[in-house]
Nucleic acid binder design. Structure first.
Lengths: 237, 237
DNA sequence: CAGTGGTCTAGACCACGTG
DNA sequence: ACGTGGTCTAGACCACTGA
């Protein structure tokens, strides 16, 4: 063991929490007590506690103490990329069209814009092993100088497109996942003969002022796409 | 402004990153330089930098410096609870059956157990507004003393069941989301006449030794369920 | 070698909560 | 008044990187 002292503190307390010695709601020993117990300075103890708080193990209440939390059992981390989330990644894309349109009323509402703005529409098909497996439709609020070069659009993911004209650090993203039956259009584009359910993922992007800057809808053949998410409690090895 | 100094440092640097003054890959001023710039001690500067690193803005490389990172644009946070993720929450549940069975080969494989263990099977229906909207099937590796009382099982979520005999802090969870057509059985149980796609969420739980302790599959009527996920870059207000 | 970040200390003062 | 956590300082020594 040549772990830094603050990590030893973290490990020790995590062990107590995982074993049940410390239960949710229980108070940890006071910081001064921990200083004595681990023969550490208060800053070192607090560094360890900060990590525990960050990992979601404890919560500090000023004037009272540090308390073991009830873990958030509903939280998962999901990695989504419309090009690689298929069971096999997308190996070919087909650009069906790029247009600049006058937004419809529905779009105006979804994008929360006024009528004098224009919208870029991008329609694509994704292929794996020669089969069309997803239909991808994106709407981006048009600003002058935005790249609408086919080459640049064809293989880009949605965040990739958006990053061309906005800082990724300021963008907020939302996903909506649902199961739907394909529309007649999608059915035709994906050459679906029998009834295949679609996994539909809608991406919505917002700028720093919380205004929508784009909406993307990707309809995956249900038999070609699965999304994975996992709880991420960090480990200390 | 009466923010603590370390948060002012965080805000200042975040502002520079969001505005593009600091680009991904750029090096921040050295910690000593930041001490001078903010008239702060090194521990205070480092506290700010630790937050920035935690939020995913920067990465420290010993001996070299602190560098602005390329944000992970594919990461989302998903909150999932099989009872509340419906467009309207579950307002009634029906327990179809609780059994202790000899696992089938498929189950043995999925749960990674040997044949001498038994498995609890729980089958439920979820209702909203009187309509059956989801079929819920769970397999839990049986251990002596596990609660299989109907009352306790009927309204519990999967994490709720598991927490009865395992510390939530040690559990790893995985979700798999897919779109499927209902089986004949599900179709009958949910009284589905026309073709309705199902949003199927599989939950898999692992104990501290990474061994599966349970699998749950919830099949939601596609027209009654949507999953939401969002990017969570924290704000400093 | 000088400069960088990583760990750690022994103090200090403050605001908060409880008696 | 006292103990709690929250902020902050001015040092120290170490390991790593690059010229």
């Amino acid at each position: 063991m040549e772990l830094p002292l603050y990590l030893k503190i973290v490990e020790d307390i995590v062990k107590d929490i995982k074993s049940g010695t410390l239960q949710p709601g229980d108070a940890l020993p006071s910081e001064n007590a921990l200083c004595d117990a681990f023969r550490a300075s208060r800053m070192t103890v607090r560094k360890g506690l900060a990590i525990l708080a960050n990992e979601g193990y404890i919560k500090s209440i000023p004037g009272k103490g540090n308390f073991v939390t009830t873990p958030n059992i509903e939280k998962y981390t999901l990695f989504y990329n419309e090009m690689t989330n298929l069971i096999n990644s997308v190996d070919k894309t087909q650009l069906l069209g790029v247009d600049i349109i006058q937004p419809t009323d529905n779009l105006l509402k979804s994008l929360n814009i006024t009528g004098n703005k224009k919208v870029i529409v991008i329609k694509r098909l994704f292929f794996t092993d020669g089969d069309p497996v997803a239909y991808d439709l994106k709407y981006l609020v048009y600003h002058k100088g935005m790249p609408i070069v086919e080459k640049e659009i064809k293989h880009e993911t949605f965040p990739g497109m958006v990053s061309k004209f906005a800082s990724l650090f300021t963008i907020k993203k939302e996903l909506t996942i649902s199961a739907q039956l394909p529309s007649a259009e999608v059915k035709k584009l994906l050459s679906l003969h029998s009834t295949v359910p679609m996994l539909v993922v809608e991406q919505k992007f917002f700028n720093a002022e919380n205004k929508p800057i784009g909406i993307g809808t990707t309809s995956f053949r249900g038999d070609y796409c699965q999304l994975f998410a996992s709880s991420s409690f960090s480990d200390f090895s």
